[in-house]
């Protein structure tokens, strides 16, 4: 039950885009057509669902104060947590590289469409953000961390696909010229964020 709760919370209430604005750069740049948005969204789900548990293991068996005690008693009072940024980003960059190779092999068309934004998942804030939130909230088990990563990815996916759908349609409406493109995308995201706030307080 706890797992379902974490999942729902990560998808709707603490949505990466609407509550924390993480991963906005690729969110705004790739959301012009639904097809590309679905591709990038699924890549983000995968990277988040894999990298958050890996970072969880690193946090608990390498970095946290006293985490190295399984190695030997001498290391029991070591605290390497200041290294966490650099370790997390290395893990994320490696996993992104893997995903890139997989997409290039199995879906070359998608690979061409995503272009520079696939390697840039490594610097997509929502991935590192997921790892850092996991560290800050101190989830109790590997399962909870995995569910949290998966949920954050699904939340990001829903956000980018829905904004892409709206932006496909908004081309036909008469937006004031200075607001076209970026400006209206920001305001739309804000309005969607308000809509998502109605999920606040839901507990399963």
């Amino acid at each position: 039950m706890e797992h379902v709760n974490i999942f729902v919370k990560a998808v709707f209430i603490e949505n990466m885009i609407f509550a924390y604005f993480l991963g906005m750069c690729s969110y705004l740049a790739i959301s012009k057509t639904v097809k590309n948005a679905v591709g990038l969204g699924s890549a983000v789900i995968f990277v988040l669902a894999v990298s958050v548990p890996v970072c969880y293991l690193m946090e608990n068996y390498l970095l946290k104060a006293g985490a190295l005690s399984w190695l030997s008693e001498d290391y029991a009072n070591l605290d390497l947590s200041f290294l966490s940024f650099i370790m997390y980003i290395a893990v994320i960059a490696a996993i992104t590289q893997l995903v890139e190779m997989a997409v290039e092999k199995f879906a070359p068309a998608l690979y061409m469409a995503l272009g520079i934004f696939l390697p840039l998942i490594a610097v997509n804030c929502s991935i590192l953000g997921g790892a850092l939130f996991m560290q800050e909230r101190e989830y109790a088990s590997l399962g909870e961390a995995t569910v949290f990563g998966l949920g954050s990815g699904v939340g990001w996916f829903i956000a980018i696909v829905s904004i892409a759908a709206i932006r496909e349609k908004i081309r036909y409406s008469n937006v004031p010229a200075p607001l076209r493109g970026l400006g209206i995308a920001f305001i739309l995201t804000g309005l969607m964020g308000i809509a998502f706030m109605s999920f606040m307080g839901i507990k399963i």
Binding site: F18, F21, F186, I187, T189, G190, M197
Partner: peptide, 10 residues
């Protein structure tokens, strides 16, 4: 609330 930040930037 967070959404206002986006609208202000817009």
């Amino acid at each position: 609330l967070p959404p206002m930040a986006l609208i202000i930037v817009g």
